[in-house]
Design a protein around this nucleic acid. Structure first.
Lengths: 108, 108
DNA sequence: TCAACACCTCAAGAGATATTGAAATATGGA
DNA sequence: TCCATATTTCAATATCTCTTGAGGTGTTGA
């Protein structure tokens, strides 16, 4: 992953509404959710949701698919993983103390 | 880690100069580096460096210590690790595909 | 065809953040 | 004491970013 790409993804998730959207969609799994449902889940208006969802999509963290009236968004786990990998490897040089923190149920 | 704290840390590193400063300081290890040296390493003026270093410090990602004329900054690995842990655990629910990406030399 | 629905786009305004250069503080050495 | 060094602070400006509300597109079903 390129630095520029990582910066775009980081700014995308450094906003409350968007971080919550991402969390919601990761929890949702492969089914994803419609724009309306996501907006409702995180408590944001339709135009605001659209704005934030497209920011996340532009950052590559979500994929979207039109299904008749609705637009279904899904978290792109590959992209989220690549961002974390960038932080761990490129930014932190794979430092053991950092890697350790990414293990489930044992950290910090 | 609280959501608010994570958001602060994420915005802190979602800026090129600051991401580079963090990377430089993680690489530097426990010795840290002076404000001037960091600024030189990432190519930013003295007032700009000061501004960004204090943003990173406020976000809890760096610690600083005055040594006579200089101020030595160090990366706080605990804090960086806690941020990554927050992303992996709280945001991604410890999803295996995400955790896997944080392992050294095997991913994405 | 029409109304309701789901979503997106746009423009305006507010607010936050970054950059610059100048000036302030504080330390160390001649 | 005086000057150079290291860093921070400040004000002005520029630049993003977020929010809101109005309006647009396309789809579904009566």
């Amino acid at each position: 992953m390129e630095e520029m790409q990582a910066l775009t993804a980081l700014s995308a998730i450094s906003e409350q509404t968007r971080l919550r959207m991402l969390r919601f969609l990761v929890a949702r799994g492969p089914d994803g959710a419609s724009a309306g449902e996501i907006g409702q889940a995180v408590g944001s208006s339709s135009s605001r949701s659209s704005f934030h969802l497209s920011a996340l999509t532009r950052a590559g963290l979500l994929s979207s698919e039109k299904q008749s009236r609705q637009v279904i968004y899904r978290a792109d786990l590959q992209a989220v993983g690549a961002l974390l990998n960038y932080l761990v490897e490129d930014c932190c040089g794979g430092h053991p103390r950092i890697v350790e923190c990414c293990q489930p149920k044992n950290c910090c």
